[in-house]
Design a protein around this nucleic acid. Structure first.
Lengths: 340, 340
DNA sequence: CCTGGAAACGTAACCGATAACGATTGCAGT
DNA sequence: ACTGCAATCGTTATCGGTTACGTTTCCAGG
């Protein structure tokens, strides 16, 4: 239903209640200095007219919009999970959420897309933003919290304990008896990609297994980037018995390639991912992966941004969330190894 | 990076360029009546100062915010797909998108949640909204487009051709030889749920198969609602040889229950869904389903809303999008039937 | 009865931009 | 040189609220 009548403003209320707009404003905002009788009059005028204060006008005057932004370089299930967490943290908080995601194909917008949006928004439409992008630091007039920041950034951010997570994942494979473990890396500008590779190396080192550089493929977290890399690894005369992919999206592509090349999983090949996106639970076999609760990442980022905006900040500027290994059907001892 | 300096306003630019704010406004908006030399001066002042016009101030003055809203009663993969389509349609259109979704558990907010949000937003923060909710018609001062509207609503909406889709799905099962086909319905306040049930009945009628009311379970589109219903259907002494669920979310739950009760799919039981959400492709076996491109639904809804807001409307107020059957591994001829 | 001061309320400036309107300028035509 | 019409640009009211400040009201205390 569309009612075409003009919006009812504060001065309408003031006229009906027989007071000034200043008084109406006071009762709307619950300020001191209005008699009980006047409050009642104004209240009754308000819901008689169905008045709703203009968020736009209020924002202009207060120079606070109470709108936060989520800027993502792409929209995948990863992003959707983060979004859920952000919405949860913001629900009933008085903040609204506006989202920007590059809805076109991966990479079709050049680097800097996020930056352009952010400068347009900051201070004029949003009070602050959460960004999830692999492309460098972002500068803004208003507070910015990064999810999974770029490597070396000291800006406010939340991230998973990628080092520990990756270490645990590879230790899991080592514990099953694997010795030739392939790795498909993420976009190395991101701190997460770097830490996950470090974890891979550290676990191998601890296990006394030398790192074989030819078993490392350089992906970029984009699922499609893993397909050719998996093909190369699996078509070698001496394929690895296990592959650890730095993201679930890439791990799922590994599963695809494995099936296509006739590898049975986990019989011929074990696969471990990282992220625990919803799809990982519903494949056959289920994907063993490192859970990093992207929901939680989004939730914490929103909480952090909120307090940055309102100026009540007493926590660390970078939050690291724990990870946990989720063992499903895609991992098993290698065939060539005798059971202990 | 946070730069704490005050925002640069239009009058700052005016001062630097040595003109009035009106002239700056003309230049910014590309209006007629400014000499080339002045335009150049203003332009240079603008990017010397890094000026960005205040969306809030502009909105107040123009009584147009250029922000559209997406209000969803829950956030599931369905919603995420719709969201993608909406974002795509809005990208580079000058409209920004603000989203509201009930991020809490299903049903924890009472009916009317969307209505409350909408009245708060409409006309003060958004120029119009896309709503996806099973709860009745929505009234708003600004245009509203419904995705999958409630039954009998004449308000602007986009929806899939649910009747044809459901008919095709059931005909597919009939063609395979199934005669006892269970149905799990959706929330019957929605036009889609009603039409899908109609399709089920129509296909059976055409095939000369009488409708057995005891084979119909009344779900509500919420995945969890299907679990007990599937259990009831499959624990009968004479379980159906196929089940058509009115949504993929519910169909996936049927698969779960089937596995739990020892039914092999598609050996003992064929399952068909509706929606074609991403998860349906990655289960084992893949779910046969009716594709309704929720992405497309979102895209069209956004297009429609845009033109409603800008007042350039010459298309029908309700758009029906075609569906197509996607046959995957979850359907096969029933065991008890001899191959043709 | 008068004064003081707090409570209650109105006035008006302002947030940043837009647009109707008025004022100025420049130049062609006579 | 003078009129007239455009093109150009500045003034100012306005969008809907907020808030510093000033004014009025009212009651307690002297």
């Amino acid at each position: 239903m569309i009612e075409a009548n003009a919006p009812v403003t504060m001065s309408d209320v003031a006229r009906v209640a027989g007071v000034s707009t200043a008084t109406v404003s006071r009762v709307v905002n619950g300020h001191y200095g209005v008699s009980a009788r006047t409050v009642a009059q104004v209240r009754s005028a308000i819901d008689q007219l169905g008045y709703e204060s203009s968020l736009v006008a209020t924002s202009l005057r207060r120079s606070r919009t109470n709108v936060l932004g989520l800027v993502a370089h792409s929209f995948q299930s990863y992003t959707a999970e983060v979004l859920k967490g952000v919405m949860k943290a913001l629900s009933r908080s008085g903040f609204d959420l506006i989202i920007y995601a590059n809805s076109d194909l991966y990479g079709s917008y050049s680097e800097g897309w996020e930056q352009r949006h952010l400068t347009r928004l900051s201070g004029t439409l949003t009070d602050g933003c959460i960004v999830v992008t692999p492309w460098g630091d972002i500068r803004s007039r208003t507070p910015v919290v990064a999810i999974d920041p770029v490597r070396g950034s000291a800006a406010p951010a939340v991230m998973a304990d990628n080092l520990a997570g990756a270490t645990t994942a590879v230790e899991h494979l080592l514990g099953l008896g694997h010795r030739r473990i392939g790795f498909i890396a993420g976009r190395d500008s991101l701190a997460s990609a770097w830490a996950r590779e470090e974890g891979y190396r550290a676990a191998l080192a601890n296990g006394g297994v030398p790192v074989d550089p030819t078993l490392i493929g350089r992906g970029d977290f984009n699922p499609e980037s893993a397909t050719p890399l998996a093909r190369v690894l699996l078509q070698r005369p001496d394929p690895p018995s296990a592959i650890f992919a730095a993201s679930d999206g890439m791990a799922l592509k590994v599963l695809e390639v494995a099936r296509e090349l006739g590898f049975s999983v986990p019989g011929d090949l074990s696969v471990v991912g990282f992220d625990n996106i919803p799809e990982s639970a519903s494949t056959e076999p289920g994907l063993t992966t490192v859970d990093q609760s992207m929901y939680q990442l989004g939730y914490e980022a929103a909480r952090m941004l909120k307090s940055l905006v309102t100026g009540e900040w007493d926590e660390p500027r970078q939050i690291v969330l724990p990870t946990s290994l989720v063992v499903r059907g895609s991992t098993a001892p290698p065939k060539s190894v005798a059971r202990p």
